[in-house]
């Protein structure tokens, strides 16, 4: 399973993200998880953008993760657009896991697209609430 529970140091510069709902109620804020896989859907929307990532498991099966990101409005202010990510992108995402493991949810703290080195969440202004 390509779910790594201790993150690459470069991704560990934590960015806080607070939501219109209680993140403490939805995610385990004292834990971090890294998922790596193929982006299958990028939902640029309000109140929160969603990134669906297919993650290959140890047994070869694939599990669809839903990664919660900032609102389209807030992300737009940090230079992200609906064209930033595309289906098929290989991404490494670091974030807080959902409280219900079966939901396969992650709150995005930062990400890396290895193909071109694109990152988000490493600068102080790259936060969302």
């Amino acid at each position: 399973m390509r779910t790594i529970f201790l993150t690459v140091a470069a991704l560990a510069l934590g960015a806080k993200a607070w939501g219109h709902h209680s993140f403490a109620a939805v995610y385990l804020e004292d834990q971090e998880v890294t998922i790596e896989g193929r982006l299958v859907q990028f939902l640029w929307r309000n109140p929160h953008t969603l990134v669906h990532v297919m993650v290959e498991q140890d047994d070869g099966s694939n599990v669809r993760y839903v990664v919660e990101w900032g609102s389209a409005t807030q992300l737009g202010a940090t230079g992200v657009s609906r064209e930033t990510l595309r289906p098929g992108d290989h991404v490494v995402i670091n974030g807080n896991p959902g409280r219900n493991a079966e939901d396969n949810r992650v709150r995005l703290l930062n990400f890396l697209r290895p193909s071109d080195g694109l990152t988000w969440g490493l600068r102080p202004d790259e936060v969302f609430d």
């Binding site: 929307r45 309000n46 969603l50 839903v66 409005t73 202010a77 079966e102 949810r105």
Partner: peptide, 18 residues
């Protein structure tokens, strides 16, 4: 303070696959 929009349309989406 920032002068950008505070409000935007809310769009529904599948947040939990199951």
């Amino acid at each position: 303070a920032r002068q950008g929009p505070e409000r935007a349309q809310c769009n529904t989406a599948n947040e939990i696959p199951y």
